[in-house]
Each structure stands twice: as structure tokens, then as C-alpha cells.
Design a protein around this nucleic acid. Structure first.
Lengths: 254, 254
DNA sequence: ATTGCCTGTTGCCAAATATACAACAATGTT
DNA sequence: AACATTGTTGTATATTTGGCAACAGGCAAT
């Protein structure tokens, strides 16, 4: 379907500003989008009128606006999965000593919607709201293996361990399905291993994934199956909490 | 300046969807904005292309999309005031036993950007991302009294105590300035009293406000000045942490 | 099963709207 | 002080949008 050009341009501006730490000027925005200064100026003013961007008082550069916080937070608060998941994330942190994360499928990527930090000094920080690729993270692999999402076509290598081969990934996903949890062995960040398991809702549909991330020194390959068992157990407990009936698990479409 | 109509319409749709718990259909959106179904359809598709709205798989109704979470959270993470304020909010909770809040001025309203909950069973919940009016909340009055914002023109009464009279408000703001903290005496929510004080940045410019909210039974009028003193002290400590030089406070524009 | 109602999408054309150009104002830089 | 750069505004043109209308799909009631 045809896009509404000026709306699309406005939204592109918002995406541009996400990665501009110190904001952007009108001309800069215009250049990035290959549009005229005047168009950029008017688009920015419209965005500002509705609070989606804001002008820095000192530098006069445009930044993302408070309305995005309002809408984004509003949306987060509505995701009941998040509320239910909190105590289980806590349980994961207690049992493993590593940071726990909750992600859902969004835009073909894994969207981190909550996090609980490890008490350890050396820990893996992942900001809420971050989008990560599906094929090289434990949470993502879970969403791929147990969800309706099809395998991506392109693979970018983030580390030397990143799987960029379609058949290798397929084998990993099959393994993930059979054992009930996914592993990311330094495939996205050097020195970081993750384990994740699926969370189902009351209908037996995949709702999201929870997992832990820790430094490879603590999350060793010898112990990783222990972690897997823990994550799997906690994920199942959360699913049950959401009304998921484990006895129907083998026939989700019954 | 002239608004870009189609961008404005798209943004209006996002605002509409904020208050639609179960999403909205194309026709519904069109009616609300008094535009044609076809226009609404195309706008919604454009928004969906960029992840700003999402279609519920079951009901086919449009909901706010994950991109708003990403952008909103990204922005929240950048507000360093928030990081710095955390321990001070904690201190407020410890000293007063009530919920503590941090707000900044946004869109002519008070935007709650962080919160720390009281351990008490009966407590005041305020979701992050909420916008509240300036003239009838303690945080808002602080932003009005110490900031560059002008007093609003219209007053809506939320409770019987809400001040809707311009001169009364002016007197309250003057009092707020002289004593260094603001009070909301059940003016926004029945049974809830709040106290707040200003936070300044390194330039001596108002950065935001922190305060506490509690049930009127605990935050009594007899004790409210005690609370005020605590909040004021903690707010000053936070300001100092941000590089504010208290000795220059009296001449902010020097 | 049939009918009717409602919702959502698409093609098309007229017309409003957004755009590019250019000039100007404002700010900062050499 | 001259210059360069940025941002805003006015205006004419033409692109884009938006409304109309037709169509398809879903749901409910008969």
C-alpha cells in the first residue's frame, strides 16, 4: 500500500533522532532524508507541536520529545506479561546470579521489555526498549523456534561465533525446540553467554521469552545446561501463572 | 507556522490510541478525526510500516506499536537527571515512608519520569510517563513557581479543593517560592497530599522537581511542614550533586 | 443458507497540500 | 568586520493527498 509521504518523513525523523545523542539541526535532518530544508523545518515544527520532538533551549537542536515517553510508557504499562513476569525475573536472578531479561517479538526483532539486574559487579546491561536480532540471541532464538516468525534472510555477524549459516541456525532451532531452551554462546556480544526459554499465554500461544545473560567466565559451557534447566523451569512457572495449561503443550493447536 | 496536515493527523492518531485500551478500528479512527475511512486506512498503514502502531492479530484493531517503547525508553535513558535522582528518591522514601516522584516540565505539564514506591500497603501509585497539570500538583506548582513557565489560563477542578482561582494560585506560588517547597492538599486526587521541591542543574536553571505523595491520613497538615523540610533538603542535595552551587541561588541570572 | 450490515481496502480524479526555490534573518566563525 | 552557516518565511507549481465510490470480507440475524 502507498505510504503517506509526509507522515512517513515525520516518522523517519523520529528514527533519525534516536541515534543522535546531541540532537540534530534542521539542515542536518534535511540532508539525511534528502529533502529540502524548508520541508524539514515544517515537519519538525509539526512534530514539536505535538510533543514528539523538542528543541533544546540552548543549542536550538531538535531532540526526541516527551510525548514519546508518555506513549511508550503507557504501552509498556499495558503489557500485562511484564507485570506477571517481574517476580519470575527476580527468581532467575536469585537462582543464577545473572541478569534476567524479558523480551517479546516486535518488528521482527526481540524487544526487551523488562530487565532485572544481577547483584554482581560484572554484569550484562541491556536497556529496556532495545531491539535485538532474532538469530543470534538466546531470547531471539526462542521467539524464532517457538513462534510463528519465519527465519530471517540475512545474517550479519556480530562476533566470530555468530551463526550466519541458514542450515546451522535451523539445526540450532530444532535443538532449541527439543530441549526447551536456547543458548547464545557469545554470538552477539563477546564474552557474554545467554540462556532463554519460551513463555506461553493462556491460549498456548508464545507470549515472549525470558532468560539470563552473564559473563562467559561464570556462565560456562559446562554449567550452561544447569542454567538452561533453571530458565526452562522458571519460564514454565510464569507460563502457568499466565493461565497456560502445560498438559496441552504438545498439541498447541488442538 | 503551518502544520504538515498528514503528519499532524498521524500524530493525532497516536494520541487517540493512547486512550483506547482495546485499540481502534479504521472507521473509528476516521470518525474521531473527522476524516475519511480511506485516509485513516492509509495513515494507519504508514504508521504500521514504521512500527508506531501494530495490528492485533485477533481483532485486527490498531494498537500503539513497539517503536514507541523503543524511542520513549531511549529518551528516558538519556535523561541523566533520572540517574542522578534515583538515590535521592530512595532517600525520600526512607525518610518519609511515602512514594517519591521525579518530574520535569514537558508540554506545559508535569511529566513523571521516575518513581520509587513506598513500602506501605496504602500508597500512591503514579505511572512513569504520566502527564499531570501544573496548577494542582505539588510537582507542577514547583515547576510553575521556579521555572520559566507562565501560569495556565484555564483551570479544571479535579476535587473540591482544586484551586481554580488565578489570584489564589499566584499567592500559593509566591508562598512556594518563599518557603522553598510546594504543597498539594488533595487538589488533584481525593485523600492524597503531596509535597515537592525544585531541583536545579549546574547552571542554576530549574531541571525538575522531586516530591512525595501519601494518603492524607499519614501526610497530615500538622506534619506537612516537616515533610516539606525533608523534601527541600533532599532536593537541594540532588541539585548539589548536579553541580548546582547553592551560594549562587539568590541570583540565578548573575 | 441467505440476506443485510458493517468494516476495511483499493482505484481514480480533482483539488488541496506539500514541496522546492529563493530571499531573508539570525547566529556564530574566521 | 566580513563571511559562512543555519533556520524561517513567502510563493507558485505540481505532486500528493483525500474524498468518493465501488468492492471484498466478516459477522449476525433471519
Amino acid at each position: 500500500m502507498a505510504e503517506i509521504q509526509s507522515l512517513a518523513r515525520g516518522l523517519k525523523i523520529l528514527n533519525l533522532l534516536e541515534h543522535a545523542r546531541n540532537g540534530m539541526g534542521t539542515t542536518e535532518v534535511a540532508n539525511q532524508l534528502s529533502i529540502d530544508k524548508s520541508s524539514a523545518s515544517r515537519l519538525l515544527h509539526t512534530l514539536a507541536n505535538y510533543g514528539f520532538v523538542e528543541q533544546d533551549e540552548d543549542t536550538a537542536r531538535y531532540l526526541l520529545g516527551p510525548q514519546l515517553v508518555t506513549l511508550g510508557q503507557h504501552l509498556l504499562n499495558r503489557i500485562t506479561l511484564r507485570d506477571h513476569a517481574r517476580p519470575y525475573l527476580h527468581e532467575l536472578v536469585e537462582k543464577t546470579g545473572e541478569c534476567a531479561h524479558l523480551a517479546i517479538l516486535a518488528q521482527g526483532q526481540a524487544l526487551y521489555i523488562d530487565q532485572m539486574q544481577s547483584p554482581a559487579a560484572l554484569r550484562v546491561e541491556s536497556e529496556i526498549g532495545t531491539l535485538s536480532p532474532l538469530y543470534c540471541t538466546a531470547l531471539g532464538k526462542v521467539l524464532l523456534a517457538f513462534g510463528a516468525m519465519r527465519v530471517p534472510l540475512e545474517f550479519k555477524a556480530f562476533t566470530q561465533r555468530t551463526v550466519t549459516d541458514k542450515s546451522t541456525l535451523a539445526a540450532q532451532l530444532a535443538q532449541t525446540k527439543s530441549r526447551g531452551y536456547a543458548i547464545d554462546d557469545e554470538e552477539y556480544n563477546y564474552g557474554v553467554r545467554c540462556v532463554a526459554a519460551p513463555v506461553y499465554d493462556h491460549r498456548g500461544v508464545l507470549a515472549g521469552a525470558i532468560g539470563i545473560s552473564g559473563p562467559a567466565g561464570r556462565v560456562t559451557l559446562e554449567r550452561i545446561n544447569e542454567f538452561g534447566a533453571v530458565v526452562k523451569t522458571v519460564a514454565l512457572a510464569l507460563s502457568t501463572r499466565l493461565g497456560f495449561d502445560a498438559s496441552l503443550a504438545r498439541r498447541p493447536h488442538g
